[in-house]
């Protein structure tokens, strides 16, 4: 019984979502282009341009009157043969950088774009510093562990004497 109610509820919710979704789409007029390439550019541009009245909606998704005006202007400029860049400029000159979802790289935005790379470089520098220091220390330790000819002979002599000595003692101890 509970499962049935739940399923019924989810169907209702789905219906609401679908219905309101189509209602929102229906409110946005359709622009017709002869050329499918132009249509594609129109769709790209209306996704890339931000509605100035809304906090976070593209002009392609917004129902606000200004977004409709901007879509209309984008379509008109496209039909006039303007480039994407020119159309973006036309919007930025009126509504400011806010109209672009991707801020352009210029004197005012280099910090915004550069900061992640700057931080990455600083992080890489710190890690490289650690690694280099560790490697230098390890190098010093292994260098001190290397024996010269004289030392090696002495070491071998000590080991063989030690082996012989322990043999002897063990034999002694094992005798009844």
């Amino acid at each position: 019984m509970a499962a049935m109610t739940r399923r019924l509820l989810s169907i209702c919710l789905l219906a609401i979502v679908i219905l309101t979704g189509t209602a929102a789409i229906a409110a946005i007029e359709v622009q017709d282009f002869e050329d499918p390439a132009l249509m594609q550019r129109y769709e790209d541009l209306t996704t890339r341009l931000r509605c100035p009245k809304c906090q976070n909606e593209s002009i392609g998704a917004s129902n606000s009157p200004i977004a409709a005006d901007m879509r209309e202007r984008v379509a008109a400029l496209l039909r006039n043969g303007q480039s994407d860049r020119q159309i973006e400029n036309a919007m930025v000159s009126r509504f400011g950088d806010y109209a672009l979802y991707d801020p352009r790289l210029d004197a005012r935005t280099w910090l915004l774009w550069g900061l992640p790379f700057g931080l990455l470089a600083i992080g890489a520098g710190v890690v490289a510093g650690f690694v280099l220091r560790r490697r230098r220390r390890d190098g010093r330790e292994s260098a001190s562990a290397v024996l010269d000819e004289h030392e090696r002979r002495r070491l071998e002599a000590l080991i063989s004497r030690h082996d012989a000595g322990s043999h002897g003692r063990r034999n002694d101890g094992g005798a009844p």
Binding site: I66, R73, R94
Partner: peptide, 8 residues
């Protein structure tokens, strides 16, 4: 209004 960037 559009040329002035008026959005409301």
């Amino acid at each position: 209004g559009f040329d002035l960037g008026v959005y409301g």
